[in-house]
């Protein structure tokens, strides 16, 4: 029973990889179907759903069709030359910005704040410690 519950949780996690509109529409039903599955059917369910998710993203699905419509994209330039120029400027800005963040990160330590150094006193030598030391000295032949 706990294996079935674990598999269901894993399957629920796998369903999160579907595009949100598809998941919202069919996710609950798919989970219901999986609840009725026998243990031997799980490998097929996972492989089938995994492939279906990849196909859903790469081939698109009617539920996500609005994203793949040409009009869904916002044009950034009137002509292709202008679009290319704007695209170049935008890409350069992003790359330079990320490079700057990478260069500055982690931020340098503040020099105005003094570093706190905790001085830890060594443990007191006991009779047992002295005996161990003597024993190691004897072994070395000192």
């Amino acid at each position: 029973m706990s294996i079935q519950r674990g598999l269901l949780s894993a399957y629920g996690l796998l369903l999160q990889f579907y595009p949100p509109p598809f998941r919202k529409r069919f996710g609950t039903e798919m989970l219901e179907l999986a609840t009725a599955a026998e243990l031997s059917e799980w490998p097929r369910i996972f492989s089938d759903t995994g492939i279906a998710i990849l196909r859903c993203w790469f081939e698109g699905s009617p539920s996500t069709a609005v994203l793949t419509e040409p009009n869904a994209y916002v044009s950034i330039g009137g002509s292709s030359v202008r679009s290319l120029g704007l695209g170049f400027v935008l890409s350069t800005t992003i790359i330079v910005g990320l490079a700057y963040i990478g260069y500055r990160w982690p931020p340098p330590c503040s020099t105005t704040r003094p570093l706190l150094i905790e001085v830890v006193s060594p443990p007191q030598a006991t009779a047992a410690t002295a005996e161990v030391r003597q024993h190691s000295r004897d072994r070395r032949g000192e």
Partner: peptide, 9 residues
Amino acid sequence: KLGPGTLYA
């Protein structure tokens, strides 16, 4: 045998 992924796609 249909799997849930194929069925709902």
